[in-house]
Amino acid sequence: MWTLEAQRWVTRGLPLGIAMLAVLLLTPLAGLVAMALNPEEAIHLSPFPAPHRGGEEGRGLAPLFTPEVQRWSAQILAWAQAYQLDPNLIATVMQIESCGDPLARSSRGAIGLFQVMPFHFGAREDPWDPETNARAGLSYLAEAWRKAGGDVAGALAGYNGGHTVIGRPERWGEETRRYVYWGVGIYEDARRGATQSPRLQEWLEAGGRHLCEQAARRIIR
């Protein structure tokens, strides 16, 4: 059967056989040109996978996190879906904040798994409840991620130092700089699916191991 394109070539004086050969050769080339000129419309032709989006179904947790954090893997994957965040980012924040200890409390009064300040909770909310704590902490993290435009360092800085420091590294205090250093290194290793993280080991040696030992004693097995 003649295609419309072949018919047009024939009307221009080309023999049918040459016209059909021209259509066969030029059609794939036209598709490539269309992709180059308008990649969004031609994305279905691309052989490359779409970039990862937070909470992508089927994306698992990297094995490098400590057992105290791995214990929360099912909840982390569910939270990743709910808040549209990479589960490895959630696990990284939990690792640094509490090492999976739901009863963790900082010297500044931050509470629970994600070390959320009490003023983020309603009067009738239980900040020690893991789901309630995650809702407050991960809502804040998701907003930091959005404000940072998907920049990991910016999102982590915003979680630790407040959203006003996002995009303004000159305003990061020493604590926030350390937080970003630990967090970015651990997260990048986790995102690659590494089984071990040199940055996580640094964090453990710098004091994180005590936090994890405390978590191991408190977590109900």
Rank of each mutant, 00 (worst) to 15 (best):
W2D: 14
T3A: 11
L4P: 03
E5P: 00
Q7D: 12
W9K: 03
V10T: 03
T11G: 06
L16H: 08
G17K: 12
A19G: 10
A22H: 03
L24V: 13
L25K: 00
L29M: 14
A34F: 04
M35K: 08
M35T: 01
A36Q: 02
A36C: 00
H44K: 04
P47C: 00
F48R: 12
F48S: 01
G54W: 00
G54I: 01
G54S: 11
E56Y: 00
R59C: 00
G60L: 11
L61Q: 01
L61V: 01
A62P: 01
L64F: 03
F65Q: 08
S73M: 08
I76E: 02
A80N: 14
A82K: 15
Y83A: 06
Y83G: 08
Y83R: 08
D86G: 15
P87A: 13
L89T: 06
T92Q: 12
E97K: 12
E97C: 09
P102F: 00
S106A: 05
S107V: 11
S107N: 11
I111V: 15
I111D: 09
V116F: 11
F119H: 15
W128F: 07
D129A: 14
E131W: 14
E131F: 15
A136I: 03
G137M: 04
Y140H: 13
A142K: 14
A144Y: 03
G149Q: 07
G149C: 09
G150A: 13
D151R: 13
V152Y: 10
V152R: 07
G154S: 09
A155W: 04
Y159H: 06
N160A: 02
G162S: 11
V165W: 01
P169N: 04
R171V: 00
G173M: 05
E174L: 12
E174V: 13
E175D: 02
R178H: 11
R178A: 07
R178K: 15
Y179R: 10
Y181R: 15
V184Q: 09
I186T: 02
A190T: 06
R191D: 10
A194T: 07
T195V: 14
Q196H: 13
S197T: 12
P198F: 09
E202R: 15
E202I: 05
E202H: 08
A206M: 06
C212G: 07
E213G: 15
